[in-house]
Amino acid sequence: MIQNFFSTLLVVLALSPAAFAAKITDGDIHKGDYKWFQFNFIQSIDNKIPFEMQNDTYFELEFGGRSGILDLYGFLDVFDSFDSSKSDRHDGDNFFFKFGPRLSLDYMTGHDLTAGPIQEWFISTLFYIGDRDLFEQYIGLGTDIQVPWLGKLGANLMARHVRENFDADDEGEWNGYILTTNWFKPLVEFENKSFITWQGYLDYKFGANKIADDVDRTSWSLEWFNGFYWHTKRYSVGYGPKYYQNMALFKSGGFAGETSGFGHYLAATYKF
Rank of each mutant, 00 (worst) to 15 (best):
M1F: 11
M1L: 04
I2V: 09
L10A: 12
L15K: 09
A21V: 03
A22H: 14
K23M: 04
K23R: 15
K23D: 04
I24F: 14
I29C: 07
G32D: 03
K35R: 09
Q38L: 04
F41G: 09
F41L: 14
S44Y: 14
I45C: 02
K48N: 07
I49T: 12
I49Q: 07
P50M: 04
F51Q: 04
E52P: 04
M53F: 08
F59C: 13
E62F: 07
G64M: 06
G64I: 11
R66M: 08
I69L: 13
L72F: 10
Y73A: 09
G74I: 00
V78C: 09
F79I: 09
F79R: 14
D80Q: 05
D80N: 13
S81I: 12
S84H: 03
S85A: 13
S85R: 14
S87K: 06
S87R: 03
D88C: 07
G92S: 03
G92C: 03
G92Q: 02
G92H: 05
F97Q: 01
F97G: 08
K98L: 15
G100I: 12
S104D: 05
M108P: 00
G110F: 09
H111Y: 08
G116P: 11
S124P: 13
S124H: 05
Y128P: 04
F135W: 10
E136C: 06
Q137V: 13
G140I: 11
G142T: 09
T143Y: 09
D144Y: 06
I145L: 01
Q146E: 10
V147G: 03
W149D: 05
A155P: 04
N156K: 15
L157D: 02
L157P: 04
H161P: 02
H161G: 06
V162H: 04
R163W: 15
D170G: 09
G172N: 05
W174Q: 05
N175H: 05
G176A: 13
Y177W: 14
I178Q: 10
T180R: 09
T181Y: 05
T181H: 10
N182R: 12
P186C: 03
L187E: 00
F190K: 02
E191L: 01
N192R: 04
F195A: 00
G200E: 10
Y204A: 13
G207W: 00
A208I: 10
N209Q: 10
K210Y: 02
I211A: 01
D213Y: 12
D214T: 11
V215Q: 13
T218M: 05
T218G: 09
S221L: 00
L222I: 15
E223M: 08
W224P: 00
F225H: 13
N226T: 03
F228K: 01
W230D: 01
Y235F: 13
S236T: 07
G238A: 07
K242V: 12
M247R: 15
A248I: 10
A248F: 10
L249T: 03
L249Y: 11
S252Y: 00
G253P: 00
G257E: 03
G257P: 06
E258N: 06
E258D: 12
F262G: 00
F262L: 15
G263P: 11
Y265G: 01
Y265R: 11
A267W: 00
T269P: 07
F272W: 13
